[in-house]
C-alpha cells in the first residue's frame, strides 16, 4: 500500500491532488464523474462577502493550449456558501479549501471572520483582485500591500492560511517572502496570467468584426511559467507550496513535485476530462510502486535528489 498522504504544515490531505478554484464549483458538483471525497481536497470557487454577478458579455475565449476567462468572480456570497454548500461538503466528507476574494482589506477581514466562526479548516486567499481603495492595483502585485493583507487576515483566521500568488509580477520571490513573514502557512501558485484574446472575422458584406476578451489565461500553455514561478518561490521560502498551472498529466505532477511543489492543483483540465484528478492519483500511485518506494514523500525526495 502506497502512502500518498501529504501533511502541509498541519493541514492533512489524503493525496496531493487538489482541484483549482473556479473549475470545480463549491462542493459535490463533480459527483456525476468521480467520487469527489477521494480527492486530496477541492478549492471552492472564489467567495466574496456579498454575492457577485460577475462580468457581462463574453466570458470565455479559447486559445492555443489554453483558454482566457473573465468570469468576474461570480459567486453566491459567503452566507449562502455557509448555509447551502458547507453542509454538503460535510455530509459527503469532502476535504476542502475555501477560496476568498475581496475588493478591500475590510472585505477579506469580514470573510476571514466568517470562515473562522464557521470552523473552516483551510482558506486560500485570491490576491489577484483589484484593491478598489488603492487605485484598483491588485493586492498581490506589491509586497507591502500583500504583507498587510496577509497579516490582517492572520490576526483573525487561525486555520490553515494559503496565499495564492499571481504570476503577473516581476519579483515573485519578494511576494512569497512577504506572505510567509506575515503569517501565511502555505503558498499556492500560480493564478492565471493576464491575456487578451483577439478574433478578427471578415463578414460577408466585407466588414471587419472584432472580438476582444481580456482575462486570465489558463491551461497547458501556462505550465512552463508556473514551473518557473514554483521553482523561484521554493528558493525563497520555507513554507509548503501548492503548484498550479497547466497540469493535465501525471508527468506534469512529477515536474511540479521536482521543482518544489508539495501538492498540486488541477484546473482547466477538469473541463476536458472531468475525471482527470482520479486518473492522475491512480497513476501517481503506480509510479511510486514501480519505483519500489513507499510514499509520496519518498518520491519527492527521489525527484529532488534529497
Amino acid at each position: 500500500m502506497v502512502d500518498l498522504s501529504v501533511n502541509l504544515n498541519g493541514f492533512k490531505l489524503k493525496n496531493p491532488i487538489i482541484t483549482a478554484s473556479g473549475t470545480y464549483g463549491y462542493a459535490d458538483e463533480y459527483d456525476d464523474f468521480i467520487n469527489v471525497s477521494e480527492l486530496g481536497a477541492i478549492v471552492t470557487k472564489a467567495i466574496s462577502i456579498e454575492p457577485k454577478k460577475g462580468n457581462s458579455g463574453e466570458r470565455l475565449f479559447e486559445t492555443y493550449g489554453g483558454m482566457i476567462n473573465r468570469i468576474g468572480l461570480e459567486n453566491v456570497g459567503i452566507k449562502e456558501f455557509i448555509s447551502k454548500k458547507l453542509p454538503t461538503l460535510k455530509d459527503k466528507n469532502i476535504n476542502f479549501i475555501m477560496n476568498l476574494a475581496g475588493s478591500s482589506v475590510e472585505d477579506y477581514i469580514k470573510a476571514a471572520e466568517v470562515a473562522q466562526n464557521a470552523g473552516i479548516k483551510a482558506v486560500e486567499v485570491n490576491v489577484s483582485c483589484p484593491n478598489v481603495k488603492q487605485g484598483c492595483l491588485e493586492f498581490g502585485t506589491n509586497p507591502n500591500s500583500l504583507g498587510h493583507l496577509t497579516s490582517e487576515i492572520r490576526k483573525i483566521y487561525k486555520g490553515f492560511l494559503i496565499i495564492k500568488l499571481t504570476p503577473n509580477v516581476a519579483d515573485i520571490e519578494s511576494l512569497a517572502k512577504s506572505a510567509e513573514s506575515n503569517g501565511a502557512d502555505c503558498i499556492s501558485a500560480i493564478n492565471t496570467l493576464k491575456g487578451l484574446g483577439v478574433k478578427i472575422e471578415i463578414t460577408p458584406d466585407k466588414n471587419i468584426k472584432k472580438t476582444f476578451v481580456q482575462g486570465g489565461l489558463s491551461g497547458k500553455c501556462i505550465k512552463p511559467v508556473a514551473l518557473s514561478m514554483v521553482k523561484r518561490i521554493k528558493s525563497s521560502v520555507q513554507i509548503p507550496i501548492i503548484g498550479i498551472g497547466g497540469i493535465s498529466t501525471v508527468d506534469d505532477v512529477l515536474e511540479f513535485l521536482t521543482v518544489g511543489a508539495d501538492a498540486i492543483q488541477i484546473g482547466t483540465e477538469n473541463f476536458r476530462h472531468p475525471d482527470v484528478t482520479i486518473k492522475i492519483k491512480n497513476e501517481l500511485n503506480n509510479i511510486i510502486e514501480s519505483l519500489n518506494l513507499k510514499s509520496l514523500d519518498d518520491l519527492k525526495r527521489k525527484l529532488r535528489n534529497e
Partner: peptide, 16 residues
Amino acid sequence: KVMACGIGVCRGCIIE
C-alpha cells in the same frame, strides 16, 4: 454559447 465545463460550475456561458 461557448462553454467550458458543460455542467454549470465555471459560469462561462452565462446569459442574463
